[in-house]
Amino acid sequence: MNPQAEDLASPKRRSFLKASLLFISGLISAVIAVPLFGFAVLPALKKAPKKYVVLGIVDLLKGSRYRKVNYTFQSKDGWIQTNRKRSVYVTDSGNGNFVVFSRVCSHLNCLVRWEESKGQFLCPCHGGVFDEEGNVVAGPPPRALEKLSVKVEDGVLYVKEI
């Protein structure tokens, strides 16, 4: 065997080739994987600041008792400027104050309904029940219903986005 061929077949050279293969494929994978991961995942993790949005006119809400109110506000959904729809229960607690319950069940996000005859919020999914203060009475929900932060300005009731 001539010395050159021996060189080409040497175990040392082979292991260098193997290491290079690993390096090249690793390099290509990493250079493509990192941006792709960021592409798919990072926008999803971005947290938008919560702002106050208009819920309704105070005069029209006076005397409300667990009144269901649907409202919408503008918000971005990816590339679309969209009207987000929300639904809450509003109670007039006197002196111009309001209690606003989110309808989002603290279990798995189904929408609870106020049942006047029972004085309870019922969840249509897994049987969650909340009392009139929003505390869990029965079923799987781990926490009370959320009360939204509210403020009144110029006769308009605002709620903090959820």
């Binding site: 309704g56 809400l61 269901k68 649907n70 409202y71 919408t72 009207n83 006047e116």
Partner: peptide, 16 residues
């Protein structure tokens, strides 16, 4: 019926 009527009592203060 009572249940339904409370359910449909909806105020829509939309900004649409």
């Amino acid at each position: 019926k009572v249940h339904r009527s409370t359910d449909t009592e909806v105020f829509d203060f939309g900004l649409e």
